[in-house]
Design a protein around this nucleic acid. Sequence first.
DNA 1: ATATTGAACGATCTGTTGATTGTTCAGGCC
DNA 2: GGCCTGAACAATCAACAGATCGTTCAATAT
Lengths: 196, 196
Amino acid sequence: MSDEVCERIIEAAEERFTHYGYGKTTMAELARDCDMSSGNLYRFFPSKLDIAEEICRRASIQTADALTAILDSPGMSAAERLKEFLFQDLRTTFHALEKNHRIVEMAQLITAERPEFHNEGLKRERDVLSGILSMGREAGEFEVADPDFTAEMIQAATLKFSYPQLFSRLSLEKLELELDGVYQLIVRGLAPAKVA
Amino acid sequence: MSDEVCERIIEAAEERFTHYGYGKTTMAELARDCDMSSGNLYRFFPSKLDIAEEICRRASIQTADALTAILDSPGMSAAERLKEFLFQDLRTTFHALEKNHRIVEMAQLITAERPEFHNEGLKRERDVLSGILSMGREAGEFEVADPDFTAEMIQAATLKFSYPQLFSRLSLEKLELELDGVYQLIVRGLAPAKVA
DNA sequence: ATATTGAACGATCTGTTGATTGTTCAGGCC
DNA sequence: GGCCTGAACAATCAACAGATCGTTCAATAT
């Protein structure tokens, strides 16, 4: 079955890419891992970069899925969910960087080569964010005219905490302190205007 | 006089750096422009990079000075000043990029090589921002416990609009639309909480 | 003595060559 | 006839040599 083979290739690629790096692994090696010829790989993926893209896509989906859990978690205010969303996102990226900088390396390569890919990931997270805002609005906790738009603005405002290239110099502690400040700024703006 | 010679060197360097680029100009050329030997340049600047740093510092100071004018401009609310600050900053950076990408090139080089330099520039702008916040507080328009800290958070939240590398793909129009959204988010959070 | 030079030095850049690698495809295999 | 191979091809990379350039400093000029 074609899908099984795709999985096999992805597995082998993930192993090699994270261990030796994207640039250092050859298609020939991948092929050997899967007991096939290098030419045959191209029946399953159009190019080497597409294999990396699929690996990164899965990581991105996994991150987004973990964030989606915040929507279902009971007993939290919308503000708490928003904060959890932002912090979980930061910590995930930070630890991915710390644990295996090769993944980040790959993500950067694909972002450079395939601009749409990054937007796709951003969109996935934005949908969760938008969900949190909608929840807040329904609970009367937030006042947002357009959750999708506001989600986009929150992403813009917290961009600093999503790009490893930007925060590689800062410690997680310092970053969390800053993110908390930005969060406070945002959440105050989301609260409904009380009438005097 | 030593200062006069420094000016002469800066002038020659600015001409060549912006015209041919930092990498393509040699110390020998700079020296010839100033009718001296290359070795003699080192009596005035410790290195080539320091010449570039001084040029960038002056540009940064000029930008900050232009922003400071917002503090003195009469008949504006603090919110209007804040908005003007953010937009003017964006437009200045954007047009600098558009007009002469060599300057941005230099700024990036120095930022990479001299991390403190970038903070210095950020600090200059932050002081103006902090001033705007203080004005807003005194007028009862903003509720900010610590203007310096809040200024830092606003800088973090608007980072996307300060890094040419990040927005090079977007048009000024789209950027201004986004900045307006982020501004709205922030300014709502700065308004004093009205009691129900 | 101080100011300046320019040759000398090491680091970095450039351009070139040979090897490696991503990708294709004509041919064999089931 | 569809599946797969591996040689062929072009693009990219690595390594090396030679040149260039930033920087220093002993020697010179003022």
